[in-house]
Write a protein that binds this DNA or RNA. Structure first.
Lengths: 233, 233
DNA sequence: AAGTCTATTAACTTTTCATTAAACATTATT
DNA sequence: AATAATGTTTAATGAAAAGTTAATAGACTT
């Protein structure tokens, strides 16, 4: 699954630096929109969503501080950081006072900028992350919740053990495909020795016992190859 | 309501700077514990909860990077930042790579340090608060007020202890979902060691005792995984 | 200083579950 | 057809995990 690009809005009046950063951050897989003044940036924000704003401070018309104030007022969800040559203590303090997530002093090393941004976005994102991994399956007449390790058939709920659930999960993801002993054992047991193969058979039997309630499902052996979870459609 | 002091653990081998920072941050209304090496800091973390760790890098015995690695492993909820005289790009990158929330170069202006810390903690907190704001629940036939730590069943009111309430709150927010030992322990105890797991079991038993009055509620164990608070609908 | 409240630790019992064993069945090879 | 290899199923085992109750120790109150 390919990760969604993070969107960054950059407000920087210097053509050189603006171009440089746009190019570099694009290369680093960010989607970046660059504006050379606050007015146009604010305009754009009305119809676009970003994950982060990077603001220069010294700019004609509207400086970065005023821009930040307006952004905070109108788009309070958007985190922003300052990137400025002004390194006086008073400026840094003002930046943070306004609620910046960081204050970086020019000249900034591009790699450091990227890793700071990545860290920042990861942290902001991870809070939002809900366990929406693939864990909920429809399996013929069954429902399988691999997170809770529950297999349901109508009203009945079977509480699977961890290994049962892991195995079923593995097979479901590869339904109607041959899964070799070797791959299963390596993935779920960490190696593929003789005794674990015996163990695998025991678990196959157990899963069959659950699944036999639905005749459209079968868990078949392919001699000396592996198993296939077949589901008729 | 008066704001709870934020707790900071400082690991810094220089007596001068350690003392200076301890004093200054205390004055700024932080509760700060200062350790002169990683070993003693790790030891202390086992039984104390902090909101932030500030780590020096150049230290005898265990350097700040190794310390950070171990902290990340054992106390993954604790955010940390580096405060170091090592300003080489490679060090900064390594610091962020390890997951630091910031990397500050000595000499650091105390005011800037404080405002950076305050901003950081504010952000970290506001992200957490989202779920902590919800404090009033209907739970089968029970009502649960996590703010007052009260669990009510008809006219009966059970006054829960802090830990009981925290645990129930955690589980209620994730009802009908498997909550792993690890996540519970890290969130509520700050780490996940053997003895806290024992402690968790004791609290599970207590909660069950309250909840058994409503047969539509069950607090089930999933062997070697965690617990599920199930509420029939 | 005594008393209360509460989290942790201890001591002990019960349950769970992956593995192993064993008996039997099927498929492949000679 | 005989033998070997592989697969199926049920049951036994033992170690780890979970449950329960009680004791302990530390913080806070009075």
């Amino acid at each position: 699954m390919n990760k969604k690009k993070h969107r960054i809005i950059l407000v920087e009046d210097s053509a050189d630096l603006g171009y440089l950063l746009s190019e570099y951050l694009s290369m680093k897989n960010f989607e970046i929109n660059w504006f050379i003044n606050g007015i146009s940036a604010l305009k754009n924000l009305e119809s676009n969503k970003y994950d982060l704003a990077i603001l220069d401070i010294t700019m004609p018309d509207m400086d970065g501080f005023s821009l930040a104030e307006q952004m905070k007022e109108r788009f309070p969800e958007l985190p922003f950081l300052f990137l400025s040559a002004r390194s006086l203590k008073v400026d840094v303090l003002k930046g943070f006072y306004l609620g910046a997530v960081d204050y970086l002093k020019k000249p900034i090393d591009e790699e450091e900028l990227v890793i700071r941004i990545e860290n920042l976005l990861n942290r902001l994102n991870s809070e939002k992350r809900v366990e929406e991994d693939i864990c909920h399956f429809k399996l013929g007449q069954f429902t399988f919740n691999s997170l809770n390790q529950e297999l349901s058939f109508n009203d009945e709920i079977f509480h699977l053990t961890t290994k049962e659930s892991e195995l079923l999960h593995y097979l479901v993801l590869r339904q109607n495909m041959l899964c070799s002993h070797k791959d299963i054992l390596i993935k779920l047991w960490g190696n593929n020795d003789y005794f674990n193969k015996k163990s695998l058979n025991v678990f196959i039997t157990r899963l069959r016992k659950y699944l036999e309630k639905d005749s459209a499902i079968s868990l078949d052996n392919v001699h000396s190859q592996g198993f296939i979870l077949r589901i008729e459609k």
